[in-house]
Design a protein around this nucleic acid. Structure first.
Lengths: 189, 189
DNA sequence: CTCCCAAGATTGAACGTTCATTCGAAATCT
DNA sequence: AGATTTCGAATGAACGTTCAATCTTGGGAG
């Protein structure tokens, strides 16, 4: 990796850490610079301004999440197994990446989340949605709209991961399995 | 209602509207004053500072949400009916109060959400949790931790309400019924 | 192999703006 | 009249952003 990309990614990583801990409001550009070990000015060499930095971080984090889920797709296995693995992966990723989850939830509920960016990022997940579309056609799962399916998988995992991170819930492997079972019973036909 | 309380509530209502539209980051005290039709200084007569204003708004909104759910509790009806009505009420309230939902989601994922405030507000919902505890004892629903049950009801409703508000989903009454059915199948034994 | 220089990378102090908060004075209520 | 409520200009701190100056890099000339 070139040193240039190193610095750019250091800025993105620092922004993620600070926003997860202190929110958008508490994350000043000067703090990002200090956390990343660079000067304040250089951020504007890589990103147009603070908004662009945050939006780019959103793209990167969403892309990473999508990539993590892709390993669940294995056309050799039955769709029901693929979907359950997808759910389980959502949980594992969310639990192992609490900062990413917190950032994504903050972004989603903020004015940053404009339709253009949402549509652009949603495209990363199209192959995963295909998986659900095929399961619908084969009458394996209920014919619910994709956003509902998304809520019953990704959003439930994120919500529980946040509760785990804040200490109000202890999610161990057996409990994750039981929740995945429950979600499967919600969407299966 | 006394004029004093009027002004206080005008400030809270203005804060809710602005935060839902522009986020914490874009909501300045001067804007709150203008939106509420009062001077900037008077806010500090009713609230210690911006943080206290936002935390108090959180209490008020959470309390309103809990109160809206209480009408589902009717000891004359079977627990299974009460729980399904609770879910349905979550949906109706969330859909009719998009600003409240957006604000709550932002608050929950921000550094404002400290354990002390969370615990204090969680107490509003204890009678509702009791309902689920009894259903567990009677072997009607699965023995899942309360936070998991909460996620599978309140958080799912909030998440879908947000998607409806942002236009990516059209939630009509028949679809709400089907989602409530799905959630019931997730938690029932 | 060394020197040099142009282009890009990096710095951090400085700038103008915006923000949360204060406060003395004015208005309103009891 | 005294107490409480309300105002809005003033204050100082913090913020996002800029920019002139400095440093680094890589490659062509000698």
């Amino acid at each position: 990796m070139s040193p240039v990309e190193d610095k750019r990614e250091a800025i993105l990583a620092a922004t993620l850490r600070l926003i997860a801990r202190h929110g958008f409001h508490g994350t000043a550009m000067s703090k990002v610079a200090k956390e990343a070990g660079v000067s304040a000015g250089i951020i504007y060499h890589y990103f147009k301004n603070k908004d662009e930095l945050i939006i780019e971080l959103y793209r990167v984090v969403k892309r990473g999440f999508a990539d993590a889920l892709f390993v669940a797709i294995d056309p050799g296995k039955p769709l029901s197994v693929q979907i359950r693995e997808l759910c389980a992966l959502c949980f594992r990723y969310s639990l192992q990446h609490p900062r990413e989850v917190t950032f994504l939830e903050q972004f989603t509920n903020s004015p940053y989340n404009e339709p253009a960016i949402r549509d652009e990022v949603e495209r990363y997940f199209e192959p995963l949605l295909d998986c659900f579309e095929r399961a619908k056609k084969e009458m394996i799962i209920k014919d619910l709209p994709p956003p509902v399916i998304g809520t019953l998988t990704v959003d439930v995992a994120s919500s529980l991961a946040r509760k785990q991170a804040s200490g109000v819930l202890e999610l161990d492997d057996p409990l994750i399995d039981r929740v995945v079972d429950a979600l499967w019973e919600a969407i299966r036909r």
